[in-house]
Amino acid sequence: MLFFKRQWPIIIAFVMGIVMWARFYIPTEQSQTLQDEFMRWARILFGFAAMLGILSLLHHHWNKIKLKRPGFGFSVVTLVAFVIMALTGLLPVSWTWLGFADNLRSSNGPHMYLFEHMFVPMQATMFSVLAFFIASAAFRAFRARSIEATALLIAGCVIMIGRVPVGDWLASVTTVEMGSWGARSLINFPYVTDWLLNIPNAAAQRGIILGVILSQIAISVRIIFGIERTYMGGGD
């Protein structure tokens, strides 16, 4: 039994890894079908993994209610909201008596009504509230205490000004005729923003991406050859 618990998953990971790796170098129709089918199976597995996460979340809130822990009322709200949102999209019942369309997921259906009037505003507001906290964090982070912090401060400010109308306005009011060079703007934030984004920012991102790719290759090789086993979890 221990073989099935500990060795069998490593064998599965090895076989799957080698097959999917080798498949790339065999450009045939069957090889493409194999990749497509794997992606479909992976999608199904992801669905079940997501379901595990949801069950775990519901279990947590259910326990909180059952044990009447502090704030259990909020857990009731979560469960009720979940049930209503899930059922309005899953149950094939008519909602026309409430003025909704019969098609559950149409724009006039109850599910999309809740999505548009509850989910969307709450999500947008939650992220917009971060603007206030980013402003206070920026105040603390943007104090130029070192050359690196100064670089962050300048890049952030230049890009913010360069991407709003005031940047264009500044560029236009500071434009002067410079002989054979033609009309040039003295304070051209949009131009500097483009340069910052396309040259130093893109290059730094490229350096980070190259590092990430090398790490991804290394970790993939470790998984295939059974060196990396954290996906197996703890226990026997």
Partner: peptide, 17 residues
């Protein structure tokens, strides 16, 4: 573990090339 091995092993193989 069988399911995770299938999923993660497969994607590790897909990812490298």
């Amino acid at each position: 573990r069988m399911s995770f091995a299938f999923y993660i092993g497969g994607f590790a193989g897909v990812a490298i090339p």
